[in-house]
Design a protein around this nucleic acid. Structure first.
Lengths: 157, 157
DNA sequence: ATTATTTTGTTGACAAGGAAACAAAATAAC
DNA sequence: GTTATTTTGTTTCCTTGTCAACAAAATAAT
């Protein structure tokens, strides 16, 4: 196995682990809330005028899936929808007071994760960070171009 | 947003993209085979004496899910199960001839991906590779320790 | 040796997400 | 201005994965 593969597979494994562990911790502190719901709340809290389409693109999920998820969050009273006076098609979301509470708890949890992983990151130099960021950005742009080449309507796939 | 977050979120985004794109390409060349099935075949092809438990741990999925997936692969004639004379409990898997065909096609596809992404990796120095690998390994070990701390039966969660 | 615990794999009920078809509104073409 | 195309969000059906309960075998405890 060459180093490219090692890096990719290493990150894949690392990522699976992180997702699994953080999901576990998340659903432990935020009982009654699924991690997908919390991620959705996080996105809506961070980004103004989120809608189904933007959420779907960000999470690499279908609009149908997001539509159902946001519907559930509205029923639970965590988010609410609104529209703009000059557009009767697009539907945006924002957090309710109750949603903001979850958002804050999530943010706290995030800090806990950072604290937990501090030791690992402390040993990374500024140069290493920058080098990794450059790699990520370059690779990401490269894949964007490849995705564009497909010339495909994302929703239908 | 600090650099730790940038790195983590950058990799998350990069990863989502890669999974999405490679899944698309995979199911395009290997029509009739889902990427989850192909991943399973890949693992069984690579690892001697794979069983439900090992697959589940590697993929961070439940044994139940893997049990169903392998059942389907057996029905499709891609893998077969076998046991050892001195153990009537554990059930292992190996590829059938048909499964090996898929395995090889997948390996070819993998090479195509490497070719496709060559430009990105060519610009990474040996030092950068090593630095990333050290980071991944350190972080991975750190998370292993954290997962161990949970003291939890993985299956039940 | 006998009993208790753990490991391994399977099943059925349920939930989450994808695919495709659809309606309504917005935008582009003409 | 009218018509065609695209965008946006929803719904229904289906697949995939989780959860929890279970049985059988292996291992540990006594």
């Amino acid at each position: 196995m060459n180093k490219e593969e090692q890096v990719i597979m290493g990150f894949r494994d690392l990522f699976n682990k992180m997702v699994w562990l953080n999901k576990f911790k998340m659903e432990e502190s935020l009982k009654g809330y699924k991690s997908s719901e919390v991620h959705c709340i996080e996105y809506i809290g961070r980004n103004l005028d989120s809608n189904v389409t933007k959420l779907a693109e960000s999470f690499y999920m279908t609009r149908g899936a997001i539509s159902k998820l946001t519907k559930k969050l509205i029923e639970k009273g965590l988010i609410e929808s609104y529209q703009k006076p000059d557009n009767k098609k697009e539907i945006y979301f924002r957090l309710t007071e109750q949603g903001k509470v979850i958002y804050k708890i999530h943010a706290e949890l995030h800090k806990e994760f950072q604290e937990r992983d501090k030791d690992v990151f402390e040993q990374v130099t500024e140069e290493q960070f920058d080098s990794m960021l450059r790699f990520v950005e370059k690779y990401s742009r490269h894949l964007d171009a490849e995705i564009k080449k497909l010339g495909v309507d994302i929703q239908s796939e």
